[in-house]
Nucleic acid binder design. Structure first.
Length: 741
DNA sequence: GCAAGCCCAGATAGT
DNA sequence: CTGGGCTTGC
């Protein structure tokens, strides 16, 4: 069975699978089949060596990778579902939920996202009377995060801090940690740090997990930071069966604490480690792979490795210099339509990759105009929308009444006449009596300073108390409905802003859908489980391969994925490499940008498109950029420049254009998804609507309605529909998928 | 306590 | 251009 399957592997892959005992580093180049090796390795352990699936741990960075690996393991071995495959963060949450009481938290802890953390930092800055200009919450957070990634406690940090600023940040860090603890909450970095702390302080607990995890596998090892490294080291130190897979050339998370030394020094860290290199690429054409190799060659301090492929040469990389960001977007959409209309590709075969999220907007707008279905990842995360954060804050408070950040978020949302001064008074009372904010609320009547306002505060307390009691009996989705119902959340905000309310209602509905979905997928569904999933699931985890839509994402998000046709947009100095990386002047920083470029190029299987614009709108101004230095690192032989009208690729140094000059620059011809579609847009040709004015139609979110008006807009039609539930709305026929009844 | 309005600063990347 | 913070006038 499994031995037959091993025959499909190449010699190096097979060697990696068969070497099951002791430390092993698999240096897996892009597209060399590392997931295949990992999954076969797991299957081999189970089916050939009779290892209990329960004794295997596989760690990944994203839920998507975990999900995919689990699925593929299940395909090749029956007991695959018993293997513990999950991300570092979820693994740690699982461990902490069981044993965190040893560190003085309760297992009802909540998880803070970056937003929550920043709010807490801001509060602390206020109490310390520090200027937010000197200590911007973001930079403070970044500094604290850096310490946490390196397992440095506030006290140790204070000792090493050698200037005023760092000393102050150490002080903030200390208070931050104590506040987190008082709130019974952990931030992202804590999830790893606290698990390491738990293991370090409790030999018996560590022993329990060491016993269990006889075989450990780590994906994307080049992205591990010091705390993750320590975690792996601790867990594997008993059985020493540790298999890490990674590619130093794809290390692109240095800014998140990833320590490239982890992979470069693996053989020193783990005695008797074997190193296996997977150098045959099965993904890309020769042209693409060679171009990638030529770029990455410019980095120093790499593990020696040379990727090759037996694939065909393939077409040259189409490289295009456009006049503006709008032209670039047009170029991309035209190329996509060309291929799709000639039936050589589907929308789902394309990805558009860019260095930062801001670049997606122009492209997105153009895709809408061209009626190209797409899916945008990253950007404004669904869970970071106001209304979603509000509702989730209710759930968090219900689950963990010590979560002051969540309480303060919702205590006056919807408006209940509770302002800052009341909150301050409750705060003072809580501190004086050393009780939590929520406990203080329960005693609101005793706080004389509140006078008549105490009623409002107490009724908020009762509201939460009622909901908490309810939460014991009902499901998460029912609880969500109860929250909406008891707070009048929707009707309250319906009054304040009439403009974008339907979008917000949609979002809330979507949240309820997600809760229902969660309940269906998990037998042991619980409030904590739902909150966890939401905190730890990234946007990209929902990438669905069979959606048949063009995918738009950052270069970072694209790691681990592959597409037939890849566009790398915004290939400009100041964009990619980023302005900041140029400014830093640090070779290490620039090398990471180059690795990012390598990652991008190697996502493409058949054809790569590189584009850059002479000018683009940034911060409301037109900016001139020159072609990216990385473009010059790709030999001309690999580039197809024939489509460029003018050969003026290299423009003089970046020039900032002032407002006054702006009116002479290219003008936007269309702006945004909602309004003024300009005249030079093709009229609809390819779509025939099967409904007319007066017909009843159905739309997924809005339900049933009557068509009021139909007008051409770009290559689609804008349809005005009077919906029974949500009233009149304007939607695009194709995008909204209107169905005639 | 709250809404409106002004002003200023600000933009890598994401578990 | 956008969002957050702060001021102001109810």
């Amino acid at each position: 069975m499994i031995t037959e399957k091993l025959q499909t592997l190449n010699p190096m892959q097979k060697k990696a699978v068969l070497k099951t005992d002791g430390p092993i580093l698999i240096l897996a180049g892009a597209g060399s089949g590392k997931t295949r090796v990992l999954t076969h390795r797991i299957a081999y352990l189970i089916d050939a060596l009779n290892v209990n699936a329960f004794n295997i741990l596989a760690l990944t960075f994203t839920n998507k990778a975990a999900k995919e690996m689990k699925q593929r393991v299940c395909e090749i071995t029956q007991s695959g579902s018993d293997v513990w495959v999950s991300t570092f963060h979820s693994t740690c949450v699982r461990i902490l939920r069981r044993d965190i009481q040893n560190l003085g938290y309760t297992n009802q802890f909540t998880i803070y996202d970056a937003d929550d953390s920043e709010k807490l930092i801001k509060e602390i800055l206020k109490t310390l009377q520090l200027d937010e200009k000197m200590f911007s919450p973001k930079s403070v957070m970044a500094e604290i995060g850096k310490q946490k990634d390196n397992l440095i406690t506030p006290d140790v940090f204070l000792e090493t801090a050698d200037n005023f600023r760092l000393k102050k940040i150490a002080e903030i860090y200390k208070i931050y940690q104590s506040r987190l603890k008082a709130n019974n909450s952990l931030d992202f970095d804590d999830l790893i740090f606290k698990t390491v702390e738990l293991f370090s302080k409790n030999a018996d607990i560590l022993d329990k997990y060491q016993q269990r995890f006889k075989y450990i596998m780590v994906d994307e090892y080049q992205d591990t930071n010091t705390s993750q490294y320590k975690l792996i080291k601790l867990l594997s130190s008993k059985h020493k069966n540790i298999c890490v897979v990674g590619d130093d050339d794809q290390s692109i998370y240095g800014w998140r604490g990833a320590n490239i030394r982890n992979i470069l020094d693996f053989e020193k860290d783990f005695k008797n480690a074997e190193v296996i290199k997977l150098e045959q690429n099965y993904r890309s054409t020769k042209v693409i792979l060679n171009a990638a190799n030529m770029v990455i060659k410019n980095n120093f301090g790499r593990k020696s490795k040379s990727l090759w492929t037996e694939n065909i040469d393939g077409d040259k990389i189409i490289c295009r210099c456009l006049d503006s960001d709008l032209e670039e977007a047009k170029f991309i959409s035209e190329k996509i339509n060309e291929k799709v209309k000639s039936n050589t590709a589907n929308y789902g075969d394309f990805a558009v990759l860019y260095r930062n999220n801001a670049l997606s907007r122009v492209i997105e707008e153009r895709l809408v105009l061209s009626s190209i279905p797409y899916r945008l990842f990253g950007a404004q995360n669904f869970y970071s929308r106001k209304e979603i954060k509000d509702i989730l804050a209710y759930l968090k408070v219900i689950y963990n009444p010590h979560d002051d950040i969540a309480i303060k978020r919702i205590i006056n949302v919807p408006k209940r006449g509770i302002g800052d001064s009341s909150i301050e008074k409750v705060n003072a009372y809580a501190e004086k009596n050393s009780i939590s904010f929520m406990e203080a609320l329960s005693q609101a009547n005793e706080i004389s300073e509140l006078k008549s306002r105490s009623k409002k505060l107490f009724s908020f307390y009762s509201l939460i108390k009622d909901l908490s009691e309810l939460s014991e009996e009902i499901s998460v989705s029912q609880l969500l409905n109860a929250v909406l119902d008891k707070t009048n959340y929707i009707s309250e905000f319906a009054e304040e802003s009439k403009s974008d309310i339907s979008g917000r209602i949609d979002n809330i509905q979507e949240l309820i859908n997600k809760a229902v979905e969660y309940e269906q997928n998990n037998e042991d569904a619980s409030l904590s489980g739902f909150l966890e999933e939401i905190s730890l699931v990234a946007d990209i985890d929902n990438l669905n391969n069979d959606e048949n839509r063009v995918v738009l994402m950052t270069l970072h998000s694209s790691k681990g994925l592959e597409f037939d046709y890849v566009f790398m947009a915004g290939f400009e100095e100041g964009i990619f490499p980023s302005f900041r990386s140029i400014l830093e002047g640090e070779p290490n920083i620039m090398e990471e940008e180059r690795r990012l470029c390598y990652v991008g190029i190697t996502r493409a299987k058949k054809q790569l498109y590189i584009s850059y614009a002479k000018t683009r709108l940034q911060h409301g101004k037109y900016v001139y950029n020159t072609a990216s230095r990385f473009l010059k690192e790709i030999p001309k032989d690999y580039l197809d420049l024939s489509e460029n009208v003018s050969k003026t690729e290299n423009i003089s140094s970046p020039v900032k254009i002032t407002k006054a000059e702006n009116k002479f620059k290219p003008k936007k011809t269309y702006s945004g998804l909602k309004n003024n579609y300009a005249a030079n847009i093709p009229s609809p040709k390819n779509i025939v609507l099967d409904f007319n004015i007066g017909d009843k139609v159905r739309q997924m979110k809005y339900g049933i309605g009557t068509v009021k008006k139909i007008s051409p807009a770009g290559a689609d039609y804008e349809v005005t529909v009077e919906f029974e539930k949500v009233g009149e709305k304007k939607v695009m026929a194709m995008l909204a998928k209107l169905k005639k009844l």
